[in-house]
Design a protein around this nucleic acid. Sequence first.
RNA 1: GGGAGCGUAGCUCAGCCGGUUAGAGCGCUUGCCUUACAAGCAGGAGGUCACAGGUUCGAGUCCUGUCGUUCCCACCA
Length: 885
Amino acid sequence: MCRRGLINLEKVYNPKLVENRIYEFWENGGFFKANANSGKTPYTILMPPPNITGNLHMGHALDNTLQDIIARYKRMQGFEVLWLPGTDHAAIATEAKITAQMREEGVSKKDIGREAFMKRAYAWKEKYGGNICYQIKKLGSSCDWSRQRFTMDSDYSASVREFFVRLHKKNLIYRGKRIVNWCTKCLTSISDTEVEFEEECGRLWYIKYYFKDETEFITVATTRPETIFGDLALAINPDDSRCKKIIGKTVVVPICNREIKIIADINVEKDFGTGVLKVTPAHDCNDFEIGRRHDLEETFLVIDEKGFLNEKCGKYSGLERFEARKIVVNDLKSLNLIVKEEKIEHRVGSCYRCNSIIEPFVSEQWFVKMGSLAQSATEIVKSGKIKFVPERFSKVHLSWMENIKDWCISRQLWWGHRIPAWHCEECGGITISSDDEPEKCETCGCKKILQDEDSLDTWFSSALWPFSTLGWPDEKSEDLVYFYPTDTLVTGYDIIFFWVSRMIFSSLEVMKKEPFKQVLIHGLVRDSEGRKMSKSLGNGVDPVEIIEKYGADALRFALVSGITPGNDTRFSSEKLEGSRNFVNKLWNAARFIKMNVSYASPLHSSGVSADCLRNSLWSRWIVDRVNDLSKEVCENMEKFDLGLALHKIYSFFWGEFCDWYLEIFKIEINDEKKRENCKMVIHWVFGQILRLLHPFVPFVTEKIWGIFFDGVLAISNYSKFDANLEDKNSKSEAHGVISVISAIRTKCAEMRIRQDQKINVFILPETQNYELFKENLEIIRVLSRVKSVSFSSECQNSEVIVTDFAKIYLKTEEIFDKKEIKEHLETEGLHIEKQIKKNKILFENPEFLSKAPPKVVEKIKTLIFNLEEKQKKINKEIENFKIGG
RNA sequence: GGGAGCGUAGCUCAGCCGGUUAGAGCGCUUGCCUUACAAGCAGGAGGUCACAGGUUCGAGUCCUGUCGUUCCCACCA
């Protein structure tokens, strides 16, 4: 890496020439490697492992950027920072991708078998997992690659098995036939969180069920007539007035002519449809519950795993479920069994991976008992040991935990952790073991045992991320002891249930300690029109493409500026351009400083001496300002108000440092007495700016740092408030001069005075400000772009401006229109009068005086005083015009 | 049905504990190629802070309600 010696810095910053080399420099230097023996206070962040399904998207870019900002900030503050990266095998998502790919090739899972499939999946992991890491590096992420983990690493897998075994021992895992959400395309069960519900326009058919041997019928409303083959009862609410009359009676299921009973159950809404529900326990969650209460056959399946009607459906068997619906409805109609048909808005669940409609389906699955786990996860958040930022997201976690049902953790997939359960062919007993291959059946001791075919929910393994990545189940592992509990988890609100909540209860279960102290929740990255970025809309943006075009720093800047924790953000090319411009501005400031302040050898940017500040207001001012800024920025950073912190640095750097200090520096550098001190100050202040900005835009700042200073910025100290550098007077003095310059500029623009009109300015300062202005006459002249500035008490036929610090007269060779000047003054006077009035009203109210804090009263008093002073001056000028005629 | 967010300039959004004349970026507009930067510099226009009440000496900020909007949760089949 070219550390310095940039004699000719390019006019336009080119991130392409910088970023890759800087990252290599950091990585080779091992600056991001965490050390469990450093003796420093640890600060741990675990990267939410991206799925190996494909490429990183903008959401990842935001998530990673936020983490990197925090990691770099904490590292610069002297913490031993561990930011542990990794990837997730993403069982169902990856398997869906691979099978889709295979389908195109015309092969199926069955064709190639489990072993070959796993081989293929690992190859996929190598390819895409590697690509993801490449992308994370491109973003500038300062994570410790030596500790990189994958959720299917062999020791990680061992920890998953161990966890399973422990839960099983505590009776928190059970196996049983239950109704689950079944995806007929992925051919697996999925958990409740993995079902996405959407409001859809469907139909409600009113179907006649005749009483046995009677001509009377009862009408039942259903959205799923194709499931009548699975009807095992009709149910009615016990409070329904018809209930007594019909309860226990037998009705005949249409078409299949099976006889079923009418039962009473409180889960039937009296007011929905006809108030009578057909109960299909094997294909509806609600009906399953009712079935259990009334001893109905739970496993009476009529639809198979692929979504086709089975042999129980007579001539309809073999029909796809939605096809069957149409045919059944038609047949019912022709049998005159449909009373009416109406449109209905209802919620339909679909698979979060493949989007096909979920079939509630009874099958044998493994479950985690949630009761006690959920309770501990609730308590820890209520106790405040885990804090959500913003706080409101703790509610999301809590309300989910408080209403949770048991968690279905088995999946009929191959890609993932195979369930560590072995079935005995001899005795049918189940052996649960954390061994890779247990030798014999625990029950009968024979060796004929076969591993369960199912694998585990991907979230079952990612729930262990906080401790498995640090060495668990080895409880004495150095990393685990030192880095656990971790400090901050950064993630989007969309995976609170999926992951955050599950990490909390899993960690409490095995570690007996919270997995992290804070959870920083961020929102979604949307497109410029506020739409969610998605493949189907084609509005997704590839972070790497953006980096190629604008640079990683600009991307990071665009993602972070203007965000507030928990809120969504929009991403647009306009924002990106603004961000790139900022980076370029920074680069050019460096270029300017390099051109004017060249030291033979790079400096240690240790501090500024009081000596440096002695003879320049502007040095005192800028040092005080950057000192203030450091304080505010650190306060914001601690609260994770990263967008706000960045905004403050931005406006200081651009609006104060560049616009004022650098411009003034150009003038002061000509003063031999000030020159050296100025150089030292600019050097130091710029160093502080680089420190403050580094977590946000690490590449360009590191690059520039190398031009001016020794050492590595990434591991330098963050800028920090220093009470010794406070200088309150500098602020008002600088403001006094700046306000005069601004006033002249505004007036000139207003009056369309062109620069070539050579105007002369005379100022009359307040006596106490005389020295201040005397010192700064040249600065005022140059920055206001006027011909001359001098002191004078009065000046006929001149435009007059009154500021808090001075009266200013503008004079050109041309004579101003007196009337116009007077009018300007009068408008100004009117404006001031209005303000005075508004503030004086406060004092007419006795309650204001008695109740408002003295500080505020005092503040407003001086405000009024100042305004009145100004008003007097203006009136005097107006008076002059009258006398003058 | 329950819960949450948002509503501030043409657009995207800041605005901490209530306290002078409500801010930024972009866009628009006027004038500038002023030796770091035209990806720039110096000006300017543009706001009933969704609406209605309330608390308060004082409300964009706190409370209640209304409207609009977005999202999350929930077994009306």
